[in-house]
């Protein structure tokens, strides 16, 4: 029992460190995209910058708005981070701790629970900006979750398994080559799921100050921020697991997975540096009028191809 707990704790700790350096990577890459240097002042080349940020945020005074619903207000950031970390117990190592048979289903469950953290955070702040931001964010996430589940379903029809470890260890043909359009809509859907840049309507600075997390400061803001970036890493991990099968390479099996995950995480930053924000009605039209029919028809296509082949 202790063994399992310690392994899971180490796993979570490493995810947190990865997330910390991912924020630094984002600031650096955005800097170079905008032809300026990113953070480079803290100690050696600005490398400990994320730790400085974390220390600053957690030593600040935590303030609670007098009109907020206190317990949900405290609870929701923790819930967000806990759910974001829970994904990582599914990480398919080549020598895994346990074998979740239905990992893909657990992934869907946790990703649909993720909405509630935003919902509670926006409602409990008792501020109209926070509430509006939360409503926008929830509407967006739920809309894109429908097509995400359908895309994942058609991927799973081809993969013939719910087991993530089997997918990474014995899947030679990758879905991104079998059905390239499916992979494209999946990637756009993950961008929308994590409320990332072309679709970051939940924090429209010009209209809503900062979206659902206006009232959060110090430690609770840090938790929300960490949850967001952990979710990005998670989504890139699952993109590479579901859509890029790989050939087992003995003791080096884990390395390509990590490299692919890093590539997709980088793609998230790249998109943020390149694309402008989308209009809200266009976002909703994209979800319900393009992605939903497209993912449904992709499901029909993959099913029929499976039967034919």
């Amino acid at each position: 029992m202790m063994h399992l707990l310690i392994c899971i704790l180490i796993n979570y700790l490493l995810v947190m460190v990865a997330m910390a350096f991912f924020t630094l990577l984002e600031r650096k890459v955005l800097g170079y995209i905008q032809i300026r240097k990113g953070p480079n002042k803290v100690s050696l080349m600005g490398l400990p910058q994320p730790f400085a940020d974390v220390i600053k945020l957690f030593t600040k005074e935590v303030s609670f708005p007098s009109s907020s619903n206190l317990y949900p207000f405290i609870f929701s950031p923790m819930m967000g981070l806990a759910l974001a970390l829970l994904f990582w117990s599914l990480y398919p190592y080549s020598s895994p701790l346990f074998f979740p048979m239905y990992g893909a289903l657990l992934f869907l469950c946790i990703s649909s629970l993720n909405v509630y953290a935003t919902l509670i955070a926006g409602w409990a702040s008792n501020s109209k900006y926070a509430l509006l931001g939360a409503i926008r964010s929830i509407a967006q996430t739920i809309s894109y979750e429908v097509s995400m589940a359908l895309i994942l379903l058609s991927a799973l029809i081809i993969l013939l398994s719910f087991n993530l470890i089997l997918m990474t260890s014995s899947q030679w043909s990758s879905i991104s080559l079998l059905l390239p359009p499916l992979f494209m809509i999946w990637f756009i859907t993950t961008l929308a799921e994590t409320n990332r840049t072309p679709f970051d309507l939940s924090e429209g600075e010009s209209e809503l100050v900062s979206g659902f997390n206006v009232e959060f400061s110090a430690g609770s803001f840090a938790l929300i921020f960490m949850a967001e970036y952990t979710n990005i890493l998670t989504m890139s991990l699952f993109t590479s697991v579901f859509f890029f099968g790989m050939i087992p390479l003995g003791i080096f099996t884990d390395i390509p997975l990590v490299l692919k995950t890093m590539f997709f995480a980088f793609l998230f930053i790249w998109v943020r540096g390149t694309l402008p924000r989308m209009r809200y009605d266009k976002l909703m039209n994209l979800a319900w009028k393009s992605f939903l029919p497209l993912s449904l028809s992709m499901m029909i296509l993959s099913t029929s191809l499976i039967i034919i082949i």
């Binding site: 081809i158 013939l160 990758s174 080559l177 079998l178 191809l305 082949i309």
Partner: peptide, 17 residues
């Protein structure tokens, strides 16, 4: 072309499995 090749390879993989 790429995806038809991939489907052919997938056919063999699935038979093997």
């Amino acid at each position: 072309g790429i995806s038809s090749t991939a489907w052919i390879l997938y056919h063999f993989e699935r038979n093997y499995k």
